[in-house]
């Protein structure tokens, strides 16, 4: 982990109609850092994450990624999103494409990677997550865990500088949670910058450099896993942890 800021949000606010979901958040994510975002449902965790790649457009505030304010209208957001991988709770793999085609789609379309090279890279990635023998099947023949592993390598194929995970294991059967968390752990070992919204407290405790506890649209408390899980200061944090631990 370095002290170079990869992402910085300044005075980030997001409202849906009259509902304030994010209230004036200013925060940085550093290169090589693993940040877990925990907190109760409706606290703004997912919205915060989705503002980082502008899947949600902030109502006001700035979202810097590698020095560029993505919230500015004139920014070519597609180019920047190529450097920000995202993995969703509901996998969102492309059902009309094979496993291999799922991975090759974005690199060949948007980075002009030649087909053979894209395939070579896809096969290499599939090997890393144990899905090589599935390369020619359609996603409807994959289990939830396999779909999520596919979604992860599909994002990695764009060689992103940061990976955002939005509750990647929440839609999985319990026995499949581990295989997905293993893949994320391997990613952490490789030095990837990661922001993950999760309900897996043990996982967050184990792998994170920092933890954000979000509630009511703000980062109520942040710190190392030890600071949050063992020495939390905020009432709200303590109350939440007492319910989930």
């Amino acid at each position: 982990m370095s002290d170079r800021e990869l992402i910085r949000v300044e005075n980030l606010c997001k409202s849906f109609k009259n509902l304030e979901v994010l209230r004036n958040i200013t925060e940085s994510i550093y290169e090589g850092e693993v940040v877990s975002i925990i907190g109760p449902s409706g606290g703004g965790k997912s919205t915060f994450l989705r503002c980082l790649n502008l899947l949600e457009r902030p109502t006001s505030g700035k979202v810097f990624f590698e020095g560029t304010n993505l919230a500015e209208k004139k920014v070519d957001i597609d180019k920047h999103r190529q450097k920000i991988g995202m993995v969703f709770q509901s996998f969102n793999v492309f059902p009309h494409l094979t496993v291999l085609e799922n991975i090759m789609l974005a690199p060949t379309l948007e980075k002009n990677v030649p087909k053979e090279e894209g395939e070579k890279q896809a096969i290499e990635l599939l090997g890393r997550v144990g899905l090589l023998e599935k390369k020619n099947v359609y996603p409807n023949q994959l289990s939830g865990g396999q779909k999520q592993r596919l979604a992860i390598v599909r994002a990695l194929a764009m060689e992103p500088d940061v990976m955002l995970f939005d509750e990647p294991t929440s839609a999985l059967d319990p026995e499949m949670v581990k295989e997905v968390l293993e893949v994320i752990k391997n990613l952490i070992v490789s030095g990837m910058t990661i922001v993950i919204v999760t309900h897996e407290m043990n996982f967050a405790k184990e792998v994170s450099d920092r933890i954000f506890f979000m509630d009511n649209g703000i980062i109520e408390e942040k710190g190392t896993p030890d600071e949050i899980f063992n020495h939390a200061k905020s009432e709200r944090t303590l109350e939440f942890l007492s319910k989930v631990l």
């Binding site: 899947l55 995202m86 969703f88 789609l105 764009m158």
Partner: peptide, 21 residues
């Protein structure tokens, strides 16, 4: 809607998202 979001998050242009996804 998840398909649109996945395509966008990969950095696909609107045109390619429509055509290919």
């Amino acid at each position: 809607k998840g398909q649109t979001e996945a395509a966008k998050s990969l950095g696909l242009s609107n045109r390619n998202m429509m055509r290919k996804v």
